[in-house]
Amino acid sequence: MWDYSDKVLDHFRNPRNVGVVENPDGIGEVGSLACGDALKLTFKLDENGRIAEAKFKTFGCASAIASSSALTEIIKGMTLEEAANVTNQDIAKYLGGLPEQKMHCSVMGREALETAIENYRTGNTSKKILEGKIICTCFGVTEEEILHVVRENDLTSVEQVTNYCKAGGGCGGCHNDIRKIIEQVQEEKKKDSRPKKSARMTIVEKIRLIESTIEREIRPALKKDGGDLDLIDVEGNRVTIVFRGMCAQCNVAQFTMKDVVEAKLREFVSEDIVVEEANG
């Protein structure tokens, strides 16, 4: 049996908000009989633009039913702007977690919500996301959808992508394409993860940024050669360090100082940083 949380089992056994809302403002239908799960979400807004009523009908396993039930509970009372920010992780968290291989049930919930909101805004009944290039032909999963789950859930392997949106779970012919998408997102992330240099840093923020830059950008390079360094002091833009290990005796340490340590700190912390070696 699956290791379902009590909350998943509760929502499976006693699903909330089953049915179809009368005269709905938004309808979202995703999945299919062939794929093994399908969800129809309908909602109605109140006079303030908040979701007054949300109902679901689901074909699928225990966690698909629980995820749909959870989704309707989560979005009730939300504005559409708020609802548009609900992620599959929110659904999984609400249920006290889902088994990794069942995460696609939470993604189906998010997709249905997206489709229903799109339907309200544009009148489109088909999912916008489906217009993209199909990567997984077995389960009809598009590039956009894979990008979405990889970004939203920080996925790093094909297996995870399959668990989250089924892509790659059939013939396996698309595994290379999925790997490329994962690499693409990781590249994006690398760029984004570089801390933003800010002119208005407090000294504490600055020290933290210097420390994290040393840890991430400088120390690994030094350690490769058996060296290391410690941060001694920060005063304004003057950073004092001391070399350890091999670096302490290295006759190109001065070069390392300017070309590696100072250059990296200028790149990631502040343009006008000056690095000095502590005396003795």
């Binding site: 396993c61 779970g169 059939g170």
Partner: peptide
Amino acid sequence: SDIGIAASSGSACTSGALEP
């Protein structure tokens, strides 16, 4: 199972596979 009956299924979901 909730009412004490044990059986099995060829459904995709029971095995963790995605296809029946």
